[in-house]
Design a protein around this nucleic acid. Sequence first.
DNA 1: ATCCTTACGCGGTGGAGAGC
DNA 2: GCTCTCCACCGCGTAAGGAT
Length: 361
Amino acid sequence: MAHPKLRVIVEDNDYRRLDLPSGMPETLTELHNTIREAFGVEHDFNIQFMDPDFNNDFMNLTTVQDLQDRGTIKLVYMQNVVGVSPVSSLRSTPSTSLSSETLVSSQSSPCASSIHASSTDSDSTIILKHSDSELRERAWPRNFPIPRFSYNVEMQLQQGNESFRDTGNQLKIAPGLKSEILEKLAEEIFLYTAYPQNYQIDDVAGALIKKFPCLKEQSATGYYSWMISLKYKMANYRTKMRIIGCPEVTVNALKNKSSDECLPAKNVKKPKKAEVNFFPSHPAGETDESLEKVRLELLVDIRQRNTASRVREKMSKTFSYRRKEVVQEKPTAGEVKTRWPALFHISEVGIYCTSLNLCLL
DNA sequence: ATCCTTACGCGGTGGAGAGC
DNA sequence: GCTCTCCACCGCGTAAGGAT
């Protein structure tokens, strides 16, 4: 039987064929790895597919279910230089994992996605800089991709699956195995959100059992206790992240709350629906002070001519700083307009509305 | 002995829904 | 529209047990 294949736009004018003799990848991670190996791509990239629901325009791929045999996908590279072509990014030395505010916005905000719905070539795909790896790249996926566990865990689970298939016996979880599974899942969940909701925990536990039926337990769903454990795990994982200073969770630590709201559940700051990067860390090496300087520069730049790219670059750089202001200080729209006039320029509104936690359209 | 992880209790918040 | 109740969830502290 013929195996599936994909047409891959590796870069402009470089269309390649990707044969998949083992079938379609089961997870996005697997697809990423296959592409990396097949074409020697070293730089970080996002994948877009031609979405029939939107006139076959390219949309970010959030689940492998959207892949079709002989379909076309496109690689969109993460890079830290505005306007650099994907060609150079292919050849450049890979650095830290980078993300783009625009790409994030396109998944998390209806107004931003409108900008990209009609993008069909790389030149029109706006890529902005954020010189840190803290930004989230994806909204919550339709099908949660169970990450690859460490070799010994994968081996135990594969053997467990085989035994389950043959005998119907569930895997007897060895000491430490559960911890390793929960830890890896928590890491993966944290890539999307620090505060998963019930349906999200349900998604993850369901996906785990689907991939590893040997982990099924005696309950209506087969994964109830995994859901409970994941809830505990995420709570404990947040504590861990709080201790190492992850801003998204330290903002809710009692020691960072004012005396009148010094209660654990009072005014918990977490992402609203569809927000992806709620409270990212500052770019490496940047502080409130250094980013305040950039903000002051922006106030000058915005009044000058031919500074669009500089403004865009600085707005991207100060994304985390703006988010911090919005989350912690809850400024009025007027205050934001005074401090960040570039946000209200028509060319920037669609791109940056998510940084405000507002849809300005 | 010490550290780490899981699981749990506590006292509280806040959103949803029912009743008025 | 307001009040009340219910319930899920929050950070924090901690017990228990396993790993080192």
